Amino acid sequence: MSQSIDVKNLNVYYGDFLAVEDVNVKIDARSVTALIGPSGCGKSTFLRTLNRMHEVIPGAYAEGEVNINGENIYGPGIDPVNVRRRVGMVFQKANPFPTMSIAENVLAGAKLNNKRMSKSEADQLVEESLRGANLWEEVKNRLNKPGGGLSGGQQQRLCIARTIAVKPDIVLMDEPCSALDPISTLAVEELIHELKSQYTIVIVTHNMQQASRVSDKTGFFNIAGTGTPGKLIEFDETTKIFNNPAKEETERYISGKFG
């Protein structure tokens, strides 16, 4: 588990529209990388290219390379479904399956991948994944209750448990705390910090304080104007991005002068 990502000359399109232009970046294994920038600058679009999720949108495609552990996931013969097994995604809005119990939610991805398990193996995977998501102690006595009955913060951690139950190498998070209260946000941030010992994590966030708290490196995306592509302006150690950015554009955004 936990692999590096090496992006080379990546261009992302929605039909004829170039949404993200010429991204070149290396993301370290077992680290947290935050992507920041104003709305509409391509952060989430770029994130979805890392597991080929953007291709679900009709007409969307990418050119260039995304190398995970040295293999280009856009190479010939690469199955996007297999890519998504290796690169999990946690979405902005917690999305537990409402008709499933807490335990069934955790096992959903593994079962979708046709993984056959005995009851004892399934029980072990549920406990391991919920412990990994710092949720086990809160739900261990109600595993058969609906996942939708949990609080918003618990639902988001349940979705993280569902993601890590599939044993991915990389976990992508698209604004995972945007709908959460401060206490639930702190719980998810603490979880991200713990998970990076096993996974490579890339998180999109509009909360710059969150980016400075949870990430090792930060990428700043920006857009020149409506109808122009988003670009990765600067990528560096988080402390440098927030304290001594190399680009004036980054400094203006960090300091709140625009965006």
Rank of each mutant, 00 (worst) to 15 (best):
M1T: 13
M1W: 09
M1E: 09
S4I: 06
V7T: 03
N9R: 12
L10K: 00
N11R: 09
Y13K: 05
G15L: 03
A19V: 13
V20W: 00
I27A: 01
A29S: 14
V32H: 09
L35W: 03
I36N: 04
G37E: 03
P38K: 12
S39C: 02
K43W: 00
L47H: 02
R48L: 11
R48H: 11
L50M: 14
M53D: 04
P58E: 10
A60C: 14
E63S: 03
E65C: 04
E65D: 12
V66Q: 04
N69K: 08
G70M: 01
E71M: 14
N72W: 06
I73F: 09
Y74K: 01
G77C: 06
I78T: 12
D79I: 08
D79V: 06
D79K: 09
R84M: 11
F91S: 12
F91N: 12
K93D: 15
F97E: 05
T99S: 15
T99Q: 11
M100Q: 10
S101W: 12
I102A: 10
I102V: 15
N105E: 10
A108N: 10
A108C: 10
G109S: 08
G109H: 01
L112E: 15
N114G: 05
R116E: 14
K119A: 13
A122D: 05
E128Q: 15
L130A: 07
L130F: 01
R131W: 07
R131K: 15
E138R: 07
N141C: 02
L143T: 06
K145A: 15
L150K: 07
S151K: 04
G152W: 06
G152R: 02
G153L: 04
R157M: 05
L158D: 08
L158W: 08
C159R: 07
C159P: 04
A161Q: 04
R162F: 05
R162I: 06
I164V: 08
I170H: 11
L172D: 04
E175W: 01
A179V: 02
A179W: 02
L180F: 10
L180E: 09
L180M: 06
P182G: 07
S184G: 08
A187L: 10
A187C: 08
E190D: 15
E190H: 12
E190C: 07
H193K: 13
H193W: 03
L195C: 05
L195F: 07
L195I: 09
K196D: 00
K196P: 05
Y199W: 07
I201G: 08
V204I: 13
T205Y: 03
M208T: 04
Q209D: 14
S212D: 07
R213I: 15
V214D: 08
K217I: 01
F220C: 11
F220G: 03
N222H: 14
I223G: 05
I223T: 14
A224Y: 11
T226S: 10
T226M: 13
G227E: 05
L232H: 00
I233H: 01
D236Q: 06
D236T: 01
D236Y: 00
T239L: 09
T239K: 15
K240E: 13
K240N: 11
I241C: 09
P245R: 00
P245V: 00
P245E: 12
A246G: 04
T250H: 03
T250P: 02
E251N: 12
Y253F: 15
Y253N: 10
K257W: 12
K257M: 14
